[in-house]
Design a protein around this nucleic acid. Structure first.
Lengths: 156, 156
DNA sequence: GTCAATCCCATTGACGCCCATGATATCCCA
DNA sequence: TGGGATATCATGGGCGTCAATGGGATTGAC
């Protein structure tokens, strides 16, 4: 299973290309589609990214919802039309489409932030601000993480 | 299994032809019928499209509904009589019949919007309006996709 | 004979592929 | 332990190819 941690800041060249960090590429090496899937986050000024298998599992998830139901409609309309397949070029770069750059306010640098199973692309300053705030909230609210499997690890 | 994501806006030429996006065509490459199947959505001002295998799975779905029941009647009447097979020409284009154009209010451009297992054809402005609304509804209702397996990941 | 649909070919513009460079980290051996 | 050799990675740019589009020619139906 792919694991994404750490943060890398890379340049966007004048053609709109960015190198995907080598460690992230390595995590995606076994995928059938060599590239990433990215879509604008609902809540954040960032792009959420992962490999194609992750997108497939999202699609799987939507097939458990009745076709033509309002839930199915809203979900598939919110997720898929704005998601983009971004293939690697020979050097492991992707092209960031205009629409995605606009959403994340990307101009000439992009920060790749690992999030565990997936990762995000941020404008570097926005990411710093967001991280600081998230860390503060986590401390304030005494966030805990359940360990292991199905035992009850009282979260809140 | 075919995967349709992302949105592409293509022109309808004066003969009524549109290029089907290359990525969508690639997703349909293994189908026996080289083209798409399209029918007017009974809920949206759009055409719902996919390969022939998807149409077969829809038929499968209707067999799980009691024959001669009102549901069965309504579904099969809404889905199948107006569905059309649209073959690709040598350049990967299809011809949009008059009736389908009328339903989706298509004139000179068509937006192909991926929906996961299938895709839709919209008048581009109508699609934007619909997406914005769907995204808002999804956020309002906190529609989230359950991750992976049957464990409940409810965090807060 | 007329109209429409299909096939074929030309254009163009974006994108993918390739190579070159520089910087950084890693390795090897003294 | 230090310093040089080497591999890897990020970055920049040129060029070829393919996808989208438009128009003409051919075929076939009515």
């Amino acid at each position: 299973m792919a694991v994404f941690i750490d943060t890398f800041v890379n340049k966007i060249d004048r053609k709109g290309r960015v190198s995907v960090p080598a460690t992230f590429r390595a995590a995606l090496a076994d995928q059938s589609f060599q590239g990433i899937v990215a879509f604008p986050s609902f809540q954040l000024q960032a792009l959420q990214c992962a490999g194609m298998d992750w997108m497939q599992s999202l699609i799987e998830g939507t097939t458990r919802v009745d076709l033509f139901s309002p839930e199915h409609d809203d979900l598939t309309a919110a997720l898929f039309p704005d998601a983009k397949q971004l293939p690697f070029d020979g050097e492991g770069r992707i092209m960031l489409p205009e629409a995605l750059c606009a959403h994340a306010k990307l101009t000439d640098t992009a920060a790749f932030a690992g999030r565990g199973r997936y990762f995000e692309i941020w404008e570097p300053n926005a990411l710093e601000a967001y991280k600081a705030e998230a860390r503060r909230r986590a401390a304030d609210k005494q966030r805990t993480l359940r360990q292991q499997g199905p035992d009850q690890g009282s979260n809140r």
